[in-house]
Design a protein around this nucleic acid. Structure first.
Lengths: 150, 150
DNA sequence: CCGAATGTTGACCTATACGTCAACCTGACG
DNA sequence: CGTCAGGTTGACGTATAGGTCAACATTCGG
C-alpha cells in the first residue's frame, strides 16, 4: 500500500487526543499544493469534515492524507463524487457487521471494476501512441537519409 | 493496436469516393450509443468535421471510429480538449516535414507521459483497494466463526 | 486600542459537457 | 398539397469544480 493510504488507514485507528496538532486551512492548502477555496469546496461536498475551533476549521495529519487521496483521485480522472466513494471505502472498513461488510465489499468490487476498465483503456491508448511514435521515428530517419541537409 | 484505432488510421489513407456510404447524425448517435446533441457539441469543439449534404451533416465510417476514440478518451477521464489532442496525433502523422514530425513527436511524448502517470495512480489505488478487500474478507470469515448464527 | 493576519460565509463568475426546447427548413409519401 | 420524419441553429438550463470578491469576526503584536 502507498505511504499516503497506509498513513490514512493507520490514523483512522487512533482518535485525536490532546497531543494532536491542529492547523489552519492555509497551512493545509500549502501542504497539499491547493487553495483554501478548494478545501472549503471539498468540505461542502463532504469529502472533508474538520473539527471547528473558535469558528475556524482545524485540520490534522488525517486530513492531509485524506486531501492527498482526493488529489490522487482527481489525477486519475475521477469526479469528486467518485473520490468520495473511494474515501468512504477506506474509512468504513473494520467496524461493521457482516451484512455491512458485505455491502461495502460489493462497492469495493464495483470500484475495482471501474478502475480496471479505465486502466485497460489507458493501456490500449498508450500502446497505440507508442506504435505511432515509433513509426514516426522511422519516418524521420528515412527522410533524413533522403535529404540530409534540407 | 486496437481495432477501432487501426480502422481509423487505415481510413485516413483512403479518401472518400463515390462508393462511400454516408449516414445521418441520428444513425451515428445510435451506432455509438450517444446523442445527436453530444455529436453536434463535439463538432463545435472541432473533434468532428463532417461533410455537409443539403445542409445536413453527413458522416462516414471514419467518423464512427473517431467518435469511438472520443468515447474511449472520456472513459479514461480525459477532457474533450485532451481527446482532441490525441485525435490530432492520430491524424497528423505521416505527411509532415521533419521539423513538424519532431513537434508532433514531442506532443505524443507529453501525452504518453500524462497517460503513464494516470495509469500509475490507478494501479496504486487498485492495489490498495484489493488489499482492503482481502482484509475485509478475512474479517468476515473471523466474524462468522465467532457467531455463525448471528 | 489599532491594525495586520487569518479566518468565516455568501454571492456571483467561469469553463466544461452536455440536455431541453423552440422555431425553422426540407425531401419523401400518399 | 399537406404533413411527417429527420435535420438545422439558437437560446437557455444544469451539474461539476472551483475562482474571485465583499463584508464581517477573531486574535496577536506593539
Amino acid at each position: 500500500m502507498s505511504k499516503v493510504a497506509r498513513d490514512y488507514v493507520a490514523s483512522l485507528r487512533k482518535p485525536d487526543d490532546a497531543e494532536t496538532k491542529y492547523f489552519g486551512i492555509t497551512e493545509l492548502a500549502a501542504a497539499c499544493g491547493t487553495t483554501a477555496r478548494a478545501i472549503r469546496f471539498y468540505e461542502d461536498k463532504e469529502l472533508l469534515t474538520p473539527r471547528r475551533i473558535n469558528g475556524g476549521r482545524a485540520y490534522t495529519r488525517r486530513d492531509v492524507v485524506r486531501l492527498s487521496l482526493i488529489q490522487r483521485g482527481k489525477a486519475m480522472g475521477m469526479s469528486l463524487a467518485e473520490v468520495k466513494h473511494i474515501l468512504d471505502l477506506y474509512g468504513e472498513r473494520g467496524q461493521g457487521k457482516v451484512a455491512q461488510l458485505e455491502y461495502i465489499l460489493g462497492r469495493i468490487d464495483e470500484s475495482i471494476g471501474e478502475l480496471e476498465a479505465r486502466r485497460d483503456h489507458i493501456a490500449t491508448t498508450l500502446a497505440e501512441l507508442k506504435i505511432i511514435r515509433n513509426e514516426m521515428l522511422a519516418d524521420m530517419k528515412r527522410k533524413r537519409r533522403k535529404k540530409p541537409a534540407a
